[in-house]
C-alpha cells in the first residue's frame, strides 16, 4: 500500500527508485515530503534542485518543479532561480561529495549571502554513484576504493562549515532519527535565509562493505548509538565521549536575507526621485 504522502508527493510512475537495498536515501526523501506536507507548502511553488550523485536523483521522484543539474553546481543554479523569483520555495538536495568537494565553493558563498535556500545534505561519507571513493566527509582511517590503505584526510563537518560560512540555520540529524529530521527540515524551510540540514546517512553497499560496517539495519543502529545531541554530549563523562558524533541545532539566528535585500535596492531605485 502506498501511503498518502507518497501518493501526493512522489512521481509514482518513476518508482521503484535506483537506490540500493539498505540505502537510507528513501527515508530522508520521504521525511522531506512529510516536512513539506506539514508546512502546507503549495506543491506548485516548491522547487527542488540537485547536482550529481545518488541523492541527487531524488528530485526525479518528487512531484515538484525539479532540476537535476551538473556535479556540485546545484546551489549556483538554485541561487539563480531564487533570485529570479524569490516567491518560490527553493530546496537543494545534495550528497557530501557534491556539496562539500566539487560544490564546496558554492556552499560557502550561498551560506555567506544568506539566500533563502534550504540545503539538505545526505551525508553517507562516500561517493556512492561512482562506486565507493572517499569523500570530504569520509572519516580518517576509513576505507574507500581510492583509500584502500585507509583515508589520511581529515573530514569536513558540513553543518559547522555552513554555520561558519554564514548560514542562519544549521543542524545535523541522522537518517535514523526521522521525527527530529522532519522537525529540522520544517525549521530549515521556515527560516528566511540560508539553511543547512546535514543528515548522517548510510551506504551499506560501498561504505559499509569497505569498512565492514554490517548490514543496512546494523548501520542504522550505529547511527542511533553513535550520534548524540550536543547538549547531552556535554554532560557525558569523558570516557563515554569517545566515538560519539554530535547532532542538534548548531545555528538558528535571524539576519537580512539576500533576495529581500536585493528587492530593497530595486524599491529604492524605483521609488526615489533623484537616483541618477
Amino acid at each position: 500500500m502506498t501511503s498518502e504522502i507518497v501518493q501526493k508527493y512522489f512521481r509514482i510512475e518513476n518508482l521503484p527508485h535506483i537506490w540500493c537495498p539498505g540505502c537510507s536515501n528513501g527515508v530522508v526523501t520521504r521525511a522531506l515530503t512529510m516536512a513539506i506536507d506539514e508546512l502546507g507548502l503549495d506543491q506548485d511553488n516548491v522547487v527542488v534542485v540537485s547536482g550529481i550523485g545518488c541523492s541527487s536523483r531524488a528530485p526525479g521522484y518528487l512531484d515538484f518543479n525539479t532540476l537535476h543539474t551538473t556535479h556540485g553546481r546545484g546551489l549556483a543554479f538554485a541561487t539563480g532561480i531564487k533570485l529570479a523569483n524569490p516567491k518560490l520555495d527553493v530546496i537543494l538536495i545534495a550528497g557530501d561529495g557534491d556539496v562539500s568537494a566539487i560544490g564546496g565553493n558554492h556552499l560557502i558563498h550561498a551560506a555567506r549571502r544568506n539566500i533563502d535556500i534550504t540545503t539538505i545534505v545526505f551525508n553517507n561519507n562516500i561517493y556512492g554513484m561512482t562506486g565507493g571513493q572517499y569523500s570530504p566527509t569520509t572519516p580518517t582511517a576509513a576505507k574507500g576504493t581510492t583509500a584502500p590503505h585507509g583515508n589520511i584526510d581529515k573530514p569536513f563537518d558540513i553543518a559547522q562549515l555552513a554555520a561558519a560560512a554564514g548560514a542562519t540555520y544549521s543542524s545535523r540529524t541522522t537518517a535514523y532519527h526521522v521525527n527530529q529530521m522532519v522537525k529540522y527540515f520544517k525549521d530549515a524551510i521556515s527560516n528566511k535565509g540560508f539553511s543547512m540540514v546535514e543528515v548522517a546517512s548510510i551506504c551499506p553497499t560501498y561504505y559499509g562493505r569497505k569498512n565492514k560496517s554490517g548490514s543496512g539495519v546494523q548501520m542504522m543502529q550505529a547511527l542511533k548509538n553513535d550520534f548524540i545531541d550536543k547538549m547531552a554530549y556535554e554532560k557525558l563523562p569523558e570516557e563515554k565521549k569517545e566515538g560519539k558524533h554530535l547532532m542538534g541545532v548548531f545555528k538558528n539566528i535571524t539576519l537580512p536575507e539576500y533576495t529581500a535585500e536585493y528587492q530593497r535596492v530595486i524599491d529604492a531605485l524605483q521609488g526615489g526621485e533623484n537616483n541618477e
Binding site: K82, L83, A84, Q270
Partner: peptide
C-alpha cells in the same frame, strides 16, 4: 535593478553561468 531586473556577482565563472541558467528556468 532600475527596471526590476536582477544582477548577481557569483563566486566563480561556473556559478555565473549556472545561476544564469537558473534565472532562465525561472522565466527571465
Amino acid at each position: 535593478p532600475r527596471i526590476g531586473g536582477k544582477f548577481i556577482q557569483m563566486e566563480d565563472e561556473i556559478a555565473g553561468i549556472a545561476a544564469a541558467i537558473g534565472g532562465s528556468i525561472a522565466g527571465l
